[in-house]
Amino acid sequence: MTAASHAQTAGTPAGTPAGAPGGTAAAMAAGRANALVDVAGLRVGHAERVGDGYLTGTTVVLAPPEGMVAGVDVRGAAPGTRETELLDPRNLVERVHAVVLTGGSAYGLSAACGVMDRLADADAGFPVEGGVVPIVPAAVIYDLGRGGRLRAVPDGALGAAAYDAASAAEARSGSVGAGTGAVAGGLAGGVGTASVVLPWGATVAALVVVNAAGSVLDPGGAFLSGTRYGLPGEFGHLREPLAEEAAAWRPPVVTSFNTTIGVVATDLTLTKAQCGKLAGVAHDGLARAIRPAHTMVDGDTIFGLATCGGPAPGPDGLQDVLAAGADVFSRAVAHAVLAATGRDGAPAYLDVFPSAGGGVA
């Protein structure tokens, strides 16, 4: 079966979420931008540094003015994170003001300080006596040395630049922001995003930074595993790569440290615990699109976000949101790899498998 036919059969209950009670996946559609910014109130910004030893960047997801409810699920064995303990439902803070995804391994966590400063200047944060404390959870990928210098990493200034670039229209994918130096099983990795509007009006969307030790290719061939979960026609331009291209693929030797990180969000009202569950289910989408996932050399981390612009879902509605969250994350992984720019040691997917896009080998 070709990747295109996988996409075209995505309306079947076996491959995709069931939608609202009584609905079908075929009734679903992507949001306007097919991106995280389709969740009303969210803004996304990217900033990167390339050259002079740098090949890295930072991506920020900014909350609406009133903040957003957040949860987190960390499943990789080598995570680099900040402020995740605050997202435990037992703990005090109910809303966060931004989420930072960044390169630079643990060094890159300083990018969140630049975002925090910008939020404080805008008086956005948890109210305390005399002002506010912005709540900015963050997660990192390992991309050290990919531009030539180990310590050429994101800092507070790059975080501030990502904040300044944030827009409600930002839908870019590929080698931007935190995905600038990413790899995906030897291929070029990057930032990917996708969205779905459920038949009853709720929006669910994801943004992922794919920097995986595992493969993004189906073990039975060379099409992208994440395309199995596409909406009707979303990946219809792709074909099954020729067998000889698949047989010839030998992944370049890359660093043994990686990590895939991201967010999955909805415009509904969820609790912190429900956001944590949404993040956990999104890990199912990660594991469908990347094999193996959650390894000892990955720090796979996903944040679940709710802007609370819509009502709280009932049990059936929540089930639909969770199912959609897994699929939208898989789709975002595929978009990240398709949009990434190839470079020495990390070729682009369609450069390695030109027949997948209709090209001639």
Rank of each mutant, 00 (worst) to 15 (best):
V133R: 15
T180G: 02
V183C: 00
A168W: 00
V176M: 01
G179Y: 01
G145L: 01
V176L: 03
P134W: 06
R149M: 01
A182I: 08
A160S: 14
Y142I: 03
G189H: 14
G131R: 07
V133E: 15
A182W: 09
A152H: 09
A184C: 12
G179S: 04
A162W: 10
A168L: 00
P134G: 14
V183R: 10
G190C: 08
V183G: 14
V176P: 00
G159W: 05
G148E: 12
R149D: 13
Y163G: 05
A152Q: 07
A161D: 12
G174N: 01
R149V: 11
G147Q: 05
A160W: 06
S167D: 15
G190Y: 10
L144F: 07
D143F: 09
I135P: 15
G147K: 12
G181Q: 04
P137Q: 07
Y142L: 10
G156Y: 07
A178M: 01
G181M: 02
G148S: 13
G156C: 06
R146N: 13
G190S: 14
V176E: 00
D155T: 09
S167T: 13
G148Y: 11
L187T: 02
I135L: 15
G190D: 10
A188Y: 02
A184Y: 07
G189M: 09
L158E: 15
P137N: 08
A138D: 08
A162K: 05
Y163M: 02
S167Y: 06
A152L: 08
G189A: 14
A157I: 00
G156D: 12
G148I: 12
G177I: 06
V183D: 04
G174W: 01
V183L: 10
A171P: 06
S175I: 03
G185S: 12
A157N: 02
G145C: 01
D143T: 10
Y163L: 01
P134Q: 07
V140Q: 01
G148Q: 14
A157C: 00
G147D: 09
P134A: 08
S167N: 12
G186D: 11
S173R: 11
A182N: 06
D143Q: 11
R146P: 03
A178G: 10
I141E: 06
Y163S: 04
A188K: 13
S167G: 06
G181A: 07
A171F: 04
V140M: 12
A160Y: 09
L144R: 05
Y163T: 03
D143S: 10
A171Y: 03
A171S: 15
A152P: 11
A162P: 03
V132F: 03
A182K: 07
G189N: 13
D164P: 05
A166C: 08
L150G: 06
A188T: 12
V132C: 04
E170R: 13
D155Y: 04
P137T: 02
I135W: 13
G179N: 03
G174H: 02
A184D: 09
G147W: 11
G190P: 07
A178P: 00
V132P: 02
G186N: 09
D155L: 09
A169I: 00
Y142Q: 07
L187E: 04
G145H: 02
G174Y: 00
P154H: 09
L187G: 04
L144A: 06
I135V: 15
